[in-house]
């Protein structure tokens, strides 16, 4: 019998959504699923804040919901519209295979996180950790199998989400100011990468990263 806490259920659902994201080549669907993943993570943050009575986590939950799950997908969608790119057709591994691999990676992360000591007082344990690791692995898979710049950015965001989930479930709250700093860095990084995507489209007339191979030894 598997007994999950609400937090674990939420983060596991976000891990599954991220795995489903790998299966679609439509960038807009990817963005939607990324937004849904992040909303779930924001909810998990809120759920953690409630019993621990940490109002700072509520603030972070709001910031995640507002910035990461709404503002970033909107920004990336706007970028996609501007450069008229909607599908990542050049996936290096067929998306179905990649999606099945990411489910297997979810299983793998269950095994990987078994050795970790159970944290106390976070309302989530082993399953939370494996959801985090699975998100990290899924993000890596996305970055490795996709070719378009936008997909790379989404992959990076999924990795970052995974690390956040890991921190949320394995620790009793990172200091607020550090969370804010991390959020700021990620936001600026995504903005920069988005702007660079524009420039790549302007300069090369495509955003296929796998074709950027002029520089090598």
């Amino acid at each position: 019998m598997i007994v999950l806490t609400n937090i674990e259920l939420t983060v596991l659902m976000s891990a599954v959504l991220a795995a489903l994201m790998v299966g679609s080549v439509h960038l807009r669907v990817n963005l939607w699923l990324y937004g849904a993943t992040t909303i779930l993570i924001a909810i998990a943050t809120g759920l953690t804040a409630y019993p621990n009575e940490e109002p700072s986590l509520l603030l972070i939950a709001l910031l995640i919901a507002g910035l990461k799950s709404i503002a970033i997908p909107l920004f990336l969608a706007w970028t996609m519209d501007r450069i008229h790119v909607h599908r990542d057709l050049g996936a290096l591994v067929a998306p179905p295979i990649a999606m099945h691999s990411s489910i297997l990676l979810l299983g793998l992360s269950f095994l990987l996180t078994q050795g970790l000591p159970t944290p106390s007082g976070t309302g989530a344990g082993w399953y939370g950790a494996s959801a985090g690791i699975s998100l990290v692995l899924t993000g890596l898979l996305l970055m490795l199998t996709r070719r378009l710049a936008i997909s790379q950015i989404i992959g990076f965001l999924v990795i970052e989400n995974g690390i956040y989930v890991f921190a949320l479930t394995q620790t009793r709250g990172m200091p607020l100011i550090i969370e804010m700093g991390i959020l700021l860095d990620v936001l600026v990084g995504v903005m920069l990468a988005g702007l660079l995507t524009f420039k790549i489209q302007e300069t090369f007339e495509h955003i296929d990263i796998a074709k950027l191979t002029d520089l090598k030894d």
Binding site: M1, I2, P96, H100, G107
Partner: peptide
């Protein structure tokens, strides 16, 4: 079409994962 069928297989894989996890725990 394989992309669509993949979602069905994914659901089954997840179910299998839960079955396996239930066996371990």
């Amino acid at each position: 079409i394989p992309e669509f069928i993949a979602y069905a297989i994914t659901m089954s894989l997840l179910a299998a994962l839960i079955a396996v996890a239930g066996g371990i725990v």
